[in-house]
Each structure stands twice: as C-alpha cells, then as structure tokens.
Amino acid sequence: MTLTDSDRAHAGEHALQPPASGKVTLKDIADAVGVSISTASRALKGMPGISSEVRSRIQQAAERLNYAGTSQPGGVLTVLSDLHLAESATGEFMQAVQAGMEKRARELGLPMSMQLVNPAAMRQLDPDAATSGYLLFSMQHEDIVSLLHERGIPAVIVNGREPLMRLDAVAPANRTGGYLGARHLTQLGHTRILRLTHSPRPTIRDRMAGCVKAMLDAGLEDHDDLVVELEAMRTHLAYQAIKQRIEAQGSPDFTAILCCNDACAFGAIAALNEAGINVPGDVSVVGFDDIPTAALNSVPLTTIHVDAEDIGARSVNRLLERVRGQDHLATYTETAVSLVVRESTAPVRSNT
C-alpha cells in the first residue's frame, strides 16, 4: 500500500522527541512527521503544493523540536494601499489580487492586516514592532519605497515594478501582454492603432512598450498622435477621451484601440457605440486584465488574461522569504499572460 504525505504525517506524530545529539536537523523533522525531507523543506519555506494539514503538522513538529531554521514571522503581514477597491475602476482585478494574498496567508497561518495610506503622508509611516513586512498593494510611491529600503524593512510591491530594484516586486508580464494585444491587431490588418495609456505607472509604460514593439515588428510606425494619455485608468475618462476625439475629427482616425486595462476598454466601446460606430465592424478594441465582466460586456472583450490571484499568492511567498532572511537579492517576478480573443476584434474593414 502506498502512503500519502498525510498518512505518513499521522503515523509519525509519536516520534516528536529531540534527537540524542541535541541538534535538530531537517531530517529529524521529516522523520518525526513521517514525510520526505523535500516535503518538510518545502512546507517550512512556505512553498505551494502541500496540503494545509500536512503543512501544519510539519510546522508544529518543528516548533516542538525547536528547529532553529523554521520559525514563523513574529508579527503580521501588513498590506499598504492608497486604493479604495470598491470605488476603483480597477476594483475587480485588485479584489482578485487581494483574495490571492489573503488565501495564501491563511494557508500559511499568517495574520494579515490592511492599512490605507495617504500618499501625501508616506514619509510619516511609522512601522511598528507587530509588523513583519509590508505588501505594497499596487502602489510604489517614492517616499514609501525609500523609507522601507533605507530601514531594511522587508517589503514586496504587489502588481507593480520598482525601476531601481530596491524592493522586490511581483507583476504580470506587462510588456508581453502589450505585445500580444498589438500583434493580434496587426495580424488582423490594423495599422492605425490608438493607445489609451496612463504613463505614471511603470507597468502601463511596459504594456505600451510591448505594443510599440509589436507594431515595429509588423513594419508600422509609432505615431505620437495615436497616443491618448488618461489622468487615471477609469471607464468614464476613457469614454470622454474617445468621445472628444471622434467629435474633434468628425470620424475615427483609427481602426483599433489598445487599452491599458479592461475598464478603459468598456468606456471606449461605450463612446464608439454612442457615436454609431460598430465594434468590431468599424473599430476593434483590446483590453488588459480579463476581469470577470470582460466576457459579459455588451461586446464580449478581447483582452489579455492575467491570473490576479496568483500574483497575490506569489507576493506573500516572496515577502515570507524576505522576512525569514532566506534571500537578500531583490527580485522582479513576472507571471505569464495570454491573449483571449472574443468579439471586440475583427479584421480591418476594406475601403474598397
């Protein structure tokens, strides 16, 4: 009969006695619980792929035997954010990222708190002893990044990128996503691709850089007049921008729109529909994020799929490594993205 890790964990509980040498090793923990050394190591490092029950038994064995290398953080993981998710146009995506963080923290038995911070008062942030480390939730204000870096406080930027690599960061492969979206449009024959962007965010700049690369690879020029800068990535601002452009031009001077996120794509489609412009017959639209409502829009949205929950979970894993001092080299982790083709894109309409 083949025993699972769970079976072996139950069978090995009686062995929770310190070794005669007095020095507890990883093998002692594995033998005490009845699992492989590899399983014990992965569980104590907070790695995925291990059931909560087995992880808990391994951690308890390590604590009872006073294994020096496996103590959990003494405090809580604090999520810093200046976003009110329920009010944000990116709410669905960010809520999924948050769900991923919370789920992973629960699996690891780690307490987590949320703290909203006024960007104007970032320098006054006073980390307390109860906090093991910080998750910067879709924010990377220079004041807070500098503060955490200078004090050596463990922190990970969630869904962002720190250009100077002073802090760890986890984000989707934004440049790849931008490339995939634009390549899809060029393969459909589009040469006049309007880009709705929000340059203050490095991740959005990466998306647009990927878009430009795809256009150049297709032999197209990068026209500045086809770039629209939005004050924020919100549906109503994208709607206003497209509405004003159509009114100013009299008719669209583009055949496709590549948007910085799905929320902006919804606004762009609404403005086009209001002007009597068919999507995708006259103009194709591509979003980014693949939030749940993307498939339910009046015109189901072609977009770039991002596993938001995975980003949250990986951010917690990385912060835990930082807190435990296992790795002092700052890393930037990108998660894979993919193109999801729905009904908002079509081949460019022939003029003949």
Rank of each mutant, 00 (worst) to 15 (best):
C260P: 04
E321Y: 00
A169G: 08
Q240E: 14
D143P: 12
A346W: 05
F254M: 05
H14M: 04
R123G: 15
L301G: 04
H223D: 13
A121K: 15
Y179K: 02
T70H: 11
L185I: 05
R106I: 12
S132V: 04
A241R: 10
L3I: 08
Q59F: 10
E142P: 01
Q187E: 15
A32C: 07
E334C: 11
L258Y: 11
A173Y: 02
L320C: 00
N66S: 15
L83T: 13
C211L: 09
T70C: 10
F288S: 07
T293K: 12
Y179I: 04
N174S: 14
V227S: 03
L296F: 13
V340F: 02
M101L: 13
E107P: 06
V341E: 14
R55W: 07
K103V: 04
L16N: 06
A268M: 09
A308I: 05
A169V: 00
I277H: 00
I157G: 03
E53N: 04
A182W: 03
G91L: 07
L77G: 05
S284V: 04
P154G: 03
L296M: 15
I29P: 04
T90A: 14
G46H: 02
P252K: 03
T303E: 04
D310M: 14
P119Q: 10
G12H: 11
R349K: 14
I291V: 15
S41T: 02
V156T: 12
S146W: 02
G210C: 05
T203N: 07
S51H: 08
G210Q: 07
A155R: 04
Q60P: 00
V341Q: 11
V279I: 05
E92R: 06
L188K: 08
L3N: 14
